[in-house]
């Protein structure tokens, strides 16, 4: 059991190493100037993280991301739960969300920039929009699936509708909500990078494209590793939190299922 557990834990690390090896071999085989080796790219990582300005840039990106994510979760969960428990609320919001759904949130960047400038508010707002939809959707699905009889027993015990929402629906829907949050977290990172790539003002995405423009290919690939590592780490941390919070729930599928 423990040996199996060890291999299970080591497998993603092995996969990382394997991917880096493939990269190394491919770049050596291609001998392309614009495709540095994995080792070369990794050598450039300390330079980026050592550079004060880049570091501040990256940290500022992360702060905006955290703010956008936090605000989105606070607004989306109650809305999603309400939609799940009330057909009228759901009917009211569903079509609007349907219309917004396929709009690339980061694409709103230029328009919002036009109104609010290029400050933190714009970027945070875009991240907020990007995160909201999956969290609303999963909260909605989770609340919808709560068993009616559980609510009946709650009502019989004298809980008011609001109390029922907070004390029965919220915990019952928590596994599903957290799945939505996990998707939202990765999406926050994606939106952050993309909006910075589009706005080209500051942040991690900007460093990427500045390096691309200046032909510093090793920096480009080093940044890709950094961003990738951020995504993987955030996901892994959140997964641990989730596993703690919903210990009672069925052992869940251990890969993120939805990336809406």
């Amino acid at each position: 059991m423990s040996a199996a557990g060890m291999t299970k834990r080591a497998a993603p690390v092995l996969a990382c190493i394997g991917l880096l090896v493939v990269w190394q071999v491919a770049s050596l085989a291609l001998k392309n100037d614009s495709f540095p080796t994995a080792i070369g790219a990794m050598r450039a990582i300390p330079d980026i993280l050592g550079d004060k300005e880049s570091l501040i840039n990256i940290l500022a990106s992360l702060r905006r991301m955290a703010m956008g994510f936090g605000a989105a979760v606070l607004v989306s969960i109650p809305l999603g739960l309400l939609m799940g428990r009330s057909a009228a609320v759901a009917a009211f919001f569903n079509p609007l969300l349907m219309v917004i759904y396929p709009v690339p949130k980061a694409a709103l960047m230029p328009i919002i920039m036009l109104w609010l400038g290029v400050g933190d508010i714009t970027k945070t707002l875009v991240i907020f929009l990007g995160v909201s939809l999956p969290v609303i959707y999963h909260s909605f699905e989770g609340a919808k699936a709560v068993e009616e009889k559980m609510l009946w027993s709650g009502a019989a015990m004298g809980l008011s509708p609001v109390q029922r929402l907070v004390r029965i629906v919220l915990p019952a829907a928590l596994p599903e909500i957290l799945t939505g949050c996990r998707t939202g977290l990765v999406l926050a990172l994606i939106t952050m990078i993309t909006s910075e790539m589009i706005a080209r003002q500051s942040g991690a995405g900007n460093i990427l494209f500045n390096a691309l423009d200046m032909g510093q290919y090793e920096t480009v690939f080093a940044m890709i590793i950094i961003v990738g590592a951020m995504g993987i780490c955030l996901d892994a941390i959140f997964e641990r939190v989730r596993a703690r919070l919903v210990r009672w729930s069925e052992p869940q599928f251990d890969m993120p299922l939805s990336f809406s």
Partner: peptide, 26 residues
Amino acid sequence: NAVVRPIVRVLAPLPKVALYPALLLL
């Protein structure tokens, strides 16, 4: 499964947009 599973676990949460500059170069 033994090969795909860990790779997917690593690649799925990776923000793919970040790969775009690399794809442009390649």
